[in-house]
Lab assay of single mutants.
Amino acid sequence: SRWTEEEMETAKKGLLEHGRNWSAIARMVGSKTVSQCKNFYFNYKKRQNLDEILQQHK
Rank of each mutant, 00 (worst) to 15 (best):
K38L: 03
Y41P: 02
Y41A: 04
K46W: 02
L54F: 05
M28C: 03
K46S: 12
Y44K: 02
H57S: 07
Q48W: 13
W3G: 09
N43R: 12
R2G: 13
R20P: 09
W22N: 00
A26W: 02
N21V: 15
L16Y: 02
M28G: 02
Q55H: 14
A11N: 02
K45T: 04
I25H: 04
K32D: 00
T10G: 08
K46T: 12
C37T: 05
S31P: 00
K13P: 02
N39I: 08
K38A: 05
R27E: 05
F42C: 08
F42V: 12
L50A: 11
F40I: 05
Q55K: 14
Q48Y: 15
Q36V: 15
H57Y: 09
M28A: 08
L50I: 05
E7N: 05
Q36M: 15
T10M: 11
C37H: 00
R47V: 15
G14P: 06
K32S: 01
N43Y: 06
K38G: 00
E17N: 12
R2F: 12
H57V: 13
S35V: 06
Q36A: 14
R20F: 08
A26E: 01
E9L: 05
F42L: 11
Q55C: 04
D51Y: 02
E5P: 07
K38Y: 04
Q48I: 14
N49D: 07
I53Y: 12
M28F: 09
E17H: 10
N43K: 09
K45A: 08
I25N: 02
N39R: 03
G19P: 03
W22C: 01
Y44Q: 08
G19L: 15
L54Q: 09
L15P: 05
S23P: 13
N39T: 10
A24C: 05
G14H: 03
Y44E: 15
W22L: 05
L15Q: 00
H57T: 13
V34Q: 08
Y41F: 14
H18S: 04
T33S: 13
F40S: 01
E7Y: 02
C37L: 14
N39H: 08
Y41H: 01
G14C: 10
R2M: 12
Q48V: 14
E17S: 05
K13V: 04
E9H: 07
W22I: 06
K32A: 03
M8Y: 02
N39Y: 06
I25W: 15
E52H: 12
L16Q: 06
K46C: 04
L54K: 09
G14W: 05
F40V: 02
R47A: 14
S23V: 15
E17K: 11
S1Y: 07
C37F: 08
N43S: 07
K32F: 02
V34F: 06
K46F: 01
A24E: 13
T4G: 01
M28E: 15
L15A: 02
S1R: 15
S23N: 15
V29L: 08
K46I: 07
K38E: 04
G30C: 10
N43V: 04
D51H: 09
I53G: 10
F42H: 14
H18M: 03
S31T: 06
R2K: 14
M28D: 04
S35D: 15
Q48H: 14
G14R: 06
A26T: 02
S1W: 15
H57G: 13
R47P: 13
Q36C: 08
H57D: 05
V34E: 14
T33M: 12
K13Q: 06
I53V: 14
I25K: 11
S1N: 15
S23E: 15
W3A: 04
N43H: 13
G19H: 01
Y41E: 01
A26Y: 00
A26V: 10
W3K: 14
N39K: 12
H57K: 12
E6T: 10
S31D: 00
T10S: 12
Q55W: 05
M8V: 09
S23Q: 13
T10N: 12
S35M: 10
N21Y: 14
L16T: 05
T33G: 04
N43T: 15
V34H: 10
K32V: 00
L50P: 07
R2Q: 06
F40H: 03
K38N: 00
Y41Q: 01
I25F: 02
Y41G: 02
N49T: 09
E52F: 01
Y44S: 09
A26G: 02
K46V: 01
N49C: 04
T10Q: 12
T4W: 03
A11V: 13
L50H: 10
R47S: 15
M28I: 05
E17D: 09
L54T: 10
A26Q: 03
N49Q: 03
E17C: 06
E9V: 07
R47N: 10
S31N: 10
K46P: 11
E17G: 05
G30P: 08
L54I: 12
A24N: 08
N43G: 08
E9D: 12
E7W: 07
K45H: 06
S35Y: 06
E52R: 06
K12R: 15
E52K: 10
K45Y: 04
S31Q: 07
E9C: 07
N49M: 04
S31G: 05
K13S: 06
Q36E: 15
K46N: 12
S35W: 06
I53H: 11
G30R: 07
S1F: 10
M8L: 04
W3R: 13
L54E: 07
R20N: 11
K32I: 00
E5F: 04
E5G: 06
W3V: 07
N49A: 14
E52T: 11
N43M: 07
K32E: 01
H18P: 04
N39L: 07
W3D: 08
I25P: 01
H18R: 14
V34G: 04
D51S: 08
T10H: 04
R27L: 08
I25D: 02
T10P: 07
A26R: 01
